[in-house]
């Protein structure tokens, strides 16, 4: 647990460069996606074990809180996927590409592409959020 304290201290007292930013974002998005995935497998399993409970879950997912969380979840899924693909590509195919310059450039590119891919999804889901929450769709 001492190392967690060290990690927290380093993350807040040291100005991270691209590599560490990518690492922290990958970790947070991964944990967040796993949290939802665990709940999501449980809610889906209700279609077999307790079908009316599934409908209750879907009602909860249509609440404003979950609709906003869904937009954040999408950002996590897009970033974690792209960054994971970057890591897999470097590790498995181009290990010689692990240089500081390429690391920094590839991280910037990954974050930029993740934002670009997330944006249309965010607009669609943001529109749904406004429509269902305020306009009575």
């Amino acid at each position: 647990m001492q190392s967690l304290a060290k990690f927290t201290y380093a993350s807040t007292h040291y100005r991270p460069r691209e590599g560490m930013i990518a690492f922290i974002l990958h970790r947070i998005s991964g944990l967040a996606v796993l949290l939802f995935l665990s709940i999501h497998i449980l809610d889906t399993s209700l279609v077999y074990f307790y079908p009316s409970g599934y409908e209750d879950f879907m009602d909860a997912y249509r609440s404003p809180f979950f609709m906003l969380a869904e937009i954040a979840l999408m950002a996590g899924v897009v970033y974690h996927g792209l960054n994971g693909f970057r890591i897999a590509l470097f590790d498995l195919v181009f290990p010689a590409a692990w240089t500081i310059d390429r690391e920094r450039f590839s991280v910037r590119l990954t974050i930029f592409l993740a934002f670009l891919l997330w944006l249309p999804a965010g607009i669609i889901m943001g529109g749904n959020f406004i429509g269902y929450t305020f306009l009575g769709w």
């Binding site: 279609v47 079908p51 599934y54 409908e55 879907m58 997912y61 249509r62 979950f66 609709m67 869904e70 999408m74 899924v77 897009v78 996927g81 792209l82 994971g84 693909f85 890591i87 897999a88 590790d91 498995l92 999804a121 669609i124 889901m125 749904n128 269902y132 769709w137």
Partner: peptide, 29 residues
């Protein structure tokens, strides 16, 4: 790493269909 490469298309197609094209308001039993 291998599952990461597989999961990118698998998960992205899943979320595009369920979250964007269908949407949580149209998902039921």
């Amino acid at each position: 790493r291998l599952s990461a490469i597989l999961l990118v298309p698998l998960v992205w197609v899943h979320v595009v269909i369920q979250d964007l094209l269908i949407g949580v308001h149209h998902i039921d039993l």
